[in-house]
């Protein structure tokens, strides 16, 4: 007993060091990316105010490039107006009320990026819009040039988005030319490229093929640009192709984004629970 006390007294600093490190590890464990959402919710308020002030200063320096991207965005929207669209409803022999021909499926909420990281295993983007403006958890986020990420936490005035450059972020994607679909995942290092997984060997993939969202999730509408194939690798041992994709959006230059509001999400979730319930029955 005496020896034990002497040992503790002699090494009390080292023991305290170990104890505090264990406390820190516990904090890290509690706040790993899956639980980090909870933390962000409280910290958002403090950080949001600071980053917002910062973004309002920096914003002036980016006006020119922002204007350019807004012009392009306007151009793209103009192309989507009713005049520039072909409505083939009547050709398929269906008769429908003209007011119900195009039912709104997605609405968008524009937001400004006030904080953005690129160099961590899980990267977050903070937006200056929150629940007050209609943003909810688990909404997709896109920009004029492509997919950006997914909302993971919301406060009254701010929202945190897990970007596509995050190790645990997965999005379903399809090759526009051949319609084959796979999953997008990030290796944790390149800020301009991601990997396309689960494309079988027999699929003809060419460098330069366009990759868009498949619309198989609640997050994004169909055919939102993700990037272009930059490299295809065929490894003899594997059944799947090794595909590198160059992102169409430069996530380091992000300023304005659109949060996707899927108006049919509740219905899809309901369908999901019905399917799950049906599977459980014998």
């Amino acid at each position: 007993m005496y020896n034990l006390i002497r040992f503790i007294l002699q090494h009390h600093l080292f023991l305290l060091f170990l104890l505090l490190e264990i406390l820190c590890f516990y904090l890290i464990y509690r706040n790993n990316p899956y639980n980090q959402v909870a933390y962000l919710q409280t910290a958002n308020r403090v950080n949001g105010t600071l980053y917002n002030a910062y973004a309002s200063i920096i914003g002036y320096f980016q006006l020119r490039s922002v204007n350019d991207s807004l012009v392009h965005e306007n151009l793209r929207l103009r192309e989507q107006l009713a005049e520039s669209k072909y409505n083939d409803y009547l050709h398929s022999g269906q008769v429908s009320d003209s007011t119900h021909k195009w039912v709104q499926h997605y609405t968008y909420i524009a937001a400004q990026v006030i904080y953005n990281t690129l160099n961590r295993p899980v990267n977050y983007i903070y937006l200056n819009k929150g629940s007050k403006h209609g943003i909810k958890n688990q909404m997709g986020v896109i920009s004029a040039n492509g997919v950006v990420g997914q909302v993971v936490s919301v406060t009254e005035n701010y929202a945190a988005v897990m970007s596509i450059l995050s190790k645990n972020f997965k999005v379903s994607a399809k090759l526009l030319r051949t319609e084959y679909f796979g999953n997008i995942s990030w290796d944790g290092y390149s800020t301009t490229h991601v990997n396309l997984e689960q494309i079988a060997k027999h699929v003809p993939v060419k460098v330069g093929d366009t990759l868009v969202t498949s619309g198989y999730s609640y997050l994004f509408p169909q055919n939102i640009m993700i990037g272009t194939v930059s490299n295809v690798n065929l490894e003899p041992e594997k059944n799947m192709l090794d595909i590198r994709v160059k992102l169409s959006e430069d996530l380091g230059k992000l300023t304005y984004v659109y949060v996707v509001n899927n108006l049919r999400k509740e219905e899809l979730v309901r369908l999901d629970t019905l399917v799950n319930a049906a599977q459980l029955k014998p």
């Binding site: 600093l13 305290l16 060091f17 505090l20 490190e21 820190c24 590890f25 516990y26 904090l27 890290i28 464990y29 509690r30 706040n31 980090q36 933390y39 962000l40 910290a43 403090v46 950080n47 600071l50 961590r120 977050y124």
Partner: peptide, 29 residues
């Protein structure tokens, strides 16, 4: 002891801003 405490607490302050709770605290300690 004071150095350890200063390292951990300052690290924790940085963690709050960078959203990496515990990591800079552990490294600072």
């Amino acid at each position: 002891l004071a150095l350890m405490m200063a390292g951990m607490l300052s690290g924790f302050a940085l963690d709050i801003f960078l959203g990496s709770i515990g990591m800079h605290a552990a490294a600072g300690l």
